[in-house]
Amino acid sequence: MPELLNLTGMSLEFGGVRALDQVSLSVHTGQIYGLIGPNGAGKTSLFNLITGLYRPSQGEIRFKGDSLLGIAPQHIAQRGIARTFQNIRLFAEMTLIDNVMVGMHTHLAYRFWDLLLRSRPFRHAEVQARKQALTLLERVGLSPYAHALAGTLSYGNQRKLEIARALAMQPQLLLLDEPVAGMNPTEKNDIQDLIRSLRAQHLSVLLIEHDMRFVMGLCDALTVLDFGRVIAQGSPQAIQENPAVIAAYLGEEVPHAE
């Protein structure tokens, strides 16, 4: 499998605080890659680095072989990286279908004069986009609410809409930041199935999640972060047995005082 995303020696500093310290990982095409670790380990910071919101103090990010350093967030998105947010960032006062169609912005290739003349390419592109948006909403189970405002959705449904909006960008790499937080077990299963179906379409997924059952059942490979450092990397099986990981999550065993 070819390498899609490669991070080498990424460090990020806020003032004197090291949020990330020499993090390296690589995601292959068609892989579901998990990023786990306790709160404050630097997982979301890593997403912000990849999507261009933060600049690393050290290290290199390569996507399809090209460096992403110094590229503006919108151009990174145009290259094929889409993401969702831990603290949901939908366009709350827009309808569901419009939210998804914003995701298609860069793929709606009509010119300014097409739009003014309401020419055939314009109408065709808009009608197609609307259809695709409805299909995507159907895929995440939200088509009944297509014309409701995004802000009126329940928490779990807002997360689903974020995924639909990100998929509308037709990305090659999808970054999901806690996609099932606040969802019930049935919804979690639905999302798991959805992510598996994305893998079947050769889409790569990098996801942050605290639900261990979800992560272990879904991911092909994992990286565990703690205090900004990689403490373990490997298959779900290997991670579950890794003493450093167990220590980070459960605390270290203190020998009993004699």
């Binding site: 919108q74 169609m101 314009f122």
Partner: peptide, 25 residues
């Protein structure tokens, strides 16, 4: 009624999210 109008609204709602959708704000 076009992608430009939707992009305007998206920028008003959340400019960072709009940029991460690939919109040159």
């Amino acid at each position: 009624l076009s992608r430009i109008g939707r992009a305007f609204e998206a920028i008003r709602e959340d400019e960072t999210a709009a940029r991460l959708m690939g919109i040159s704000t």
